[in-house]
Amino acid sequence: MTIGVVVFPGSNCDRDVRWAAEGCMGIPTRFLWHEERDLSGLDAVVLPGGFSYGDYLRCGAIARFAPVLEEVAWFASRGGPVLGICNGFQVLTELGLLPGALTRNSRLHFICEPTGLKVHPGACRWLSDYGEAEAISLPIAHGEGRYQCEPATLEAMEQSGQVVLRYQNNPNGSVGDVAGLCNPTGNVLGLMPHPERACDSRTGGLDGQRLFASLLG
């Protein structure tokens, strides 16, 4: 079991994902520089938080052209587990692996604080170790985390059980309290909260551990 962690020049949570998975939970990781194409030997890929290429245009808008992401898209299409955290979620929507877009928080400010969430795992393989409607707490840290999509798209995702994480007290104005989404096949998960910041009792809770542990299951 090895997790690939994509590194863009502006990624800043790449090492934190490695610490959570490998340092705290013993799951080996390998960094994937954005110009690489070799995903061989990887069992899952994480797109970590940060600002990929500076994100002056639109979060994730330039990152989607990275060579590594062509491979990640191919990996996902074959059912490989892909996790996009924060900026990684933004990249997944830009790539079209998940619908919708993430825009400036409703009150414009960047927000960093613990957030209460409800988990609805459905068919999402990353969340298989959580119970239906389980309440957990994960930190958020973003300025552009307001999820937006067409009402019909949201309706369809609600129906198919793709809205797998919801805010209890919506901090950013996301439609449908959406904090995380998965694709119809359940192998691609994008979420704004940071599960890797909740795997170490010294620095936060442990509510994020089961997300990475699901890969071992």
Binding site: N12, C13, R15, D16, W19, A20, G49, H109, F110, I111, C112, E113, P139, A141, H194, E196, R197, D200, R202, T203, G204
Partner: peptide
Amino acid sequence: VYRQYDHQVQANTV
């Protein structure tokens, strides 16, 4: 003020 700052990145903030 401080909720606008990412105070957790690097995973060492105790």
